[in-house]
Design a protein around this nucleic acid. Structure first.
Length: 114
DNA sequence: TGAATGACTCGAT
DNA sequence: GATCGAGCCATTC
């Protein structure tokens, strides 16, 4: 396994695991927080290997900018992702989060001190 | 080493 | 307002 590169993913996993209960974030938000604002795809790539990471990363809380569960197909069970989101009080319809704007959580909020 | 892919995002038409 | 194309970074073949 690589070392430095692992850190890159580790940062992503750390952020995803920091997502509060009942909240979701977007790939671009995480990518922007890491500095790779244009590397939103890398976040998705990291999620792909996150399945081997322990503890498992709540990737179900990570959706695209539209609030669409684009990654549900990559989950163990497509219904699993939507189910988990609904379990947290997130309204999902047609593989898309309805109150996405309401449950959206930005990793930058960690630095942002109200 | 070069080219292609990917759980995305933004800008232009 | 909706649709199409290009860009970006890292990994893999």
């Amino acid at each position: 396994m690589n070392r430095k590169k692992n850190q890159f993913y580790e940062s992503i996993f750390d952020i995803v695991r920091l997502i509060p209960y009942g909240r979701v974030t977007s790939y671009g938000a995480i990518a922007a927080y890491l500095g790779t604002k244009s590397g939103s795809r890398l976040v998705g790539w990291a999620m792909n290997i996150s399945h081997n990471e322990e503890p498992a990363v709540p990737a179900h809380r990570v959706v695209n900018r539209n609030g669409l569960l684009t990654g549900k197909a990559h989950f163990k069970d497509e219904n699993e992702m939507q189910k988990l989101l609904e379990e947290e009080g997130i309204v999902v319809a047609n593989n898309q989060i309805q109150n996405f704007n309401d449950v959206f959580w930005d990793p930058a909020s960690l630095d942002r001190v109200s």
